[in-house]
């Protein structure tokens, strides 16, 4: 018997099939990489030991947001876009200015004894505050810290804060520098228990 020639499989429609699958995945894809503002809640209040929160008034920056989404920052009615600069000035502090936070010398690895300001940001919102405004305020507070850390990192180590964050996993030196930057400007945002500040209801 004569050898039969093996016929080639017609691959012309392969592209069509692949297209079909492609379109299916295109449609079902949701490319939401999850991003957000990461925070830590304070641990649940201890019943046995009542909290002692005696803080010098000059160390506290109070931010109030009412039900009409208006912001009162340390006694001044301001817009959310003005908040960042104000918070930055407060966190940075100034040894010569008695209205800004006090300093406390702390031992920081790589920097030695370093004056760290005893700042605390206290955020209080009303039950009627919109979530959108709340996030904006949170964002500005975190932004202020990030900008200060960035400035400090550039001045001391010649790297941006972002670069330090990226390199921290790979190099020990960067990690130490990152720790130092974080210790110089520790993020202290305290959220008071919700109260009705006024406005709605």
């Amino acid at each position: 018997m004569a050898k039969r020639e093996i016929q080639e499989i017609n691959a012309g429609s392969m592209a069509d099939i692949a297209f079909l699958l492609l379109i299916f995945f295109l449609v079902t894809t949701t490319m939401d990489t999850d991003t957000g503002l990461i925070r830590r809640l304070p641990p649940p209040p201890d019943v046995d030991t009542p909290e002692s929160n005696e803080v010098n008034k000059r160390n506290v920056f109070e931010v109030l947001v009412n039900a009409n989404n208006q912001i009162l920052a340390k006694g001044d009615y301001i817009q959310v876009t003005e908040l960042r600069a104000k918070v930055k000035e407060f966190i940075k502090s100034d040894p010569n200015n008695p209205t800004l936070p006090e300093f406390k010398d702390e031992e920081i690895e790589g920097l030695g004894l370093f004056p760290v300001s005893k700042q605390i940001i206290s955020l209080q919102n009303d039950n009627g505050t919109s979530y959108e405004m709340y996030i904006k305020v949170q964002n500005e507070l975190v932004g202020a810290y990030n900008e200060l850390r960035n400035e400090f990192a550039q001045q001391k180590f010649g790297k941006t804060y972002q670069e330090l964050l990226q390199q921290a996993g790979a190099s020990e030196k960067a990690e130490q520098q990152l720790d130092a930057v974080k210790k110089v400007y520790p993020q202290r945002i305290s959220e008071a228990e919700p109260k009705k500040i006024g406005g709605a209801e």
């Binding site: 503002l37 830590r40 641990p43």
Partner: peptide
Amino acid sequence: LRKANALKINYSTKKTDKIKN
């Protein structure tokens, strides 16, 4: 969440370059 000791939270947000008033 605090009561349940679930303390690491994330406010899910999208990226933008500038926030408005």
